[in-house]
Design a binder for these strands. Sequence first.
DNA 1: GATGAATGAGGATTCATTCAT
DNA 2: TATGAATGAATCCTCATTCAT
Lengths: 219, 219, 219, 219
Amino acid sequence: MSESKADERDETAKPRRRQARGERRIQQLLDAAAHVFCRTGYTSASTNAIAREAGVSPGTLYQFFPNKEAIAVELGERLNRRMLETHGTVFTPENVGLPLGELLDTILDPMIEFNCANPAFLALIQSSDAPGRLLEEHAELHDSIQDRISELIGVRNPDLSPERRAHTTTMAFALFKAGLALILGHEGAEREAYVVELKTALYGYLAPVLGTEGVSARP
Amino acid sequence: MSESKADERDETAKPRRRQARGERRIQQLLDAAAHVFCRTGYTSASTNAIAREAGVSPGTLYQFFPNKEAIAVELGERLNRRMLETHGTVFTPENVGLPLGELLDTILDPMIEFNCANPAFLALIQSSDAPGRLLEEHAELHDSIQDRISELIGVRNPDLSPERRAHTTTMAFALFKAGLALILGHEGAEREAYVVELKTALYGYLAPVLGTEGVSARP
Amino acid sequence: MSESKADERDETAKPRRRQARGERRIQQLLDAAAHVFCRTGYTSASTNAIAREAGVSPGTLYQFFPNKEAIAVELGERLNRRMLETHGTVFTPENVGLPLGELLDTILDPMIEFNCANPAFLALIQSSDAPGRLLEEHAELHDSIQDRISELIGVRNPDLSPERRAHTTTMAFALFKAGLALILGHEGAEREAYVVELKTALYGYLAPVLGTEGVSARP
Amino acid sequence: MSESKADERDETAKPRRRQARGERRIQQLLDAAAHVFCRTGYTSASTNAIAREAGVSPGTLYQFFPNKEAIAVELGERLNRRMLETHGTVFTPENVGLPLGELLDTILDPMIEFNCANPAFLALIQSSDAPGRLLEEHAELHDSIQDRISELIGVRNPDLSPERRAHTTTMAFALFKAGLALILGHEGAEREAYVVELKTALYGYLAPVLGTEGVSARP
DNA sequence: GATGAATGAGGATTCATTCAT
DNA sequence: TATGAATGAATCCTCATTCAT
């Protein structure tokens, strides 16, 4: 008998048995959230707007998500998972050993394609409360991607100091996000043009660090 | 102190004094706004918070600005003006003809310095409601900077097609903003490291387009 | 005179300068809150209901109180202060030395009168989230009264052990609150009858501990 | 399918024939409700929380109870019934004739014991929306107890006027509830101490009305 | 011009209750 | 019967903006 006010939230990870309908609703809500996040950004997105977009009442939204943040987190996780499932195999030893131009093509093309199909991904990653400061709830998503980049760089050039590797990773990811925003902000030929620019930029940035030639995995 | 009842006599005859006092208020409010924008971003910044930070009442704020947007616009314009005044002379023909590395140093160093001293500048430029889509009120500021970059590129390489020049400009500016965000997000040695990374990135991106060697202005 | 130093900025910023209108509004809101608390109890009282009762918009309420709790706290403090100002002098040495019946009359009559005029006082003291567990925000009010009772008992019978004194205090206060609730819940002759019953109960409870005869203060 | 053992005096033939399983469910729900009422009080208890505590869905709860109030009513009735079954025999003529101290022991000890084991009882009786005003749904429970007290007093002292008897009853019950709240709010030695205080208080209050000596039932 | 007061629509979230499977 | 889904009004609170002094 020690707690007076706070409990209620039975977080005990009891995996809720959801009906098929509920699973559908969740997807519907996440789709709606993706729409709204893209339209207005995470911070300005209102749960009511998401519910409306999904064609349900506010209460229904809260049947599946405890709060706004959880929607973004779940959306981010699903997108991340889907991206890994679909394009997670690009970091094979063979690919990493390709000449830099081909390596970038191999990595970026599916990545860009995925993001064009799922622009909410970038919206989540970029949602910040202050310039440069990510909302906590999206940091994990952000980090999970950055980790993969870091690993790629580390494998490609194991001689980099941890600091340089970290800086290179962060900067490369920042460039990618910046270019991706341009790509998503345009269509058709313009979009294609920015794809080229992004690759050029990353090539120019990474070439001195990773080398342009193909390499073979070290024994 | 000692100009107490001077105002009462005539409301219109002393516009200078009123302006001076008003100007002080405006600067006070803009300083406060800069603070708050940096802390919370433009969208999340509340006019009440700005007024509080400035030590005045909300009503006073609205005596000088018709709405929240106008504050950002005025702040942006002033920052832009100050930047031009302070660092507007870097785009001289001699500078533009420098080897790329020196050119970047010449341009970026004061630019970065200015932005470190005035982080609100980036906050404004980055404040977006959706990824990649700037709030209307900041587009002008954004464009004015981009125009200068475009001009620099055009002068340095007059053979570029307008389209390529536009793409290069946009991308270069995007890279700059991305790097600047990293720079402002760190301090001390880390910050310096990201300055280097940003320069590296821009060098790598621009070298193929602008050439690395010094050039002399064409007749 | 001398509104001349208008430039003075109050750096302290904590003590809000309120206009007379605001002070009036606060009283109005507290009166409304008292009404609503009495009608529905603290927990069920809604801030919107309080604002409506006061004839203002919800926003106005929040101009003066940061949240619902603060309303109750301020109301409690004001009532407590007023009670002390009005009836705080009953615990004089002479009174404490009176025969028990007269002592109770002396203490209870103004106390009851005050509570009949301000029934919100009891509403606050009794507001609990679980039976027997007071809401934090009202504990202070509760304790401040109990302390006075404890002191009275201690002066009247200095030989009581601290434990017995504490138990007696708590129980006597509980009896008082229980009787007061009955008193406030009735009117006219019924009310008077319960006043008598309450005094009887307290007399019967306290007589063995405090003695029925008058005592003189010990040196 | 034998509905044969219809010893139903239930003339109205409620469609509510409960099966064993339903009965179990009901008990489950009432137990959960008791828990939640004790934790948060009646008003703050949510039907969802009760269902969760019972491990069933909200829909199931509403299959057995038409609304939240009905849960409290049924819980109260069951507790009342159990109390009567277990301790209902204390009001025998012999007991009523005991000396007051023993009479109180005889009545209060099992009463307190029962309430310690079933704290929801007090929670229900005390759940009020406004100080002193019981929620309708619990008035009946409240009255049924008070009636028994009234009867006891009437038997013990038949000369009391109906008014005095009513006042004494109400006050005595109020004292009991107040003391009981203290008892339930403490544990161990403290709890025992408050048991003593409660008995002292009731003794002091009732002695003048009921006399302290044992009496024999009048013919 | 300066102030604090006032507004009210809108934000996130909850909850008693009903519905559909 | 049991379940989870669905509802929508109500909750506390915020904020850009306007008003009165």
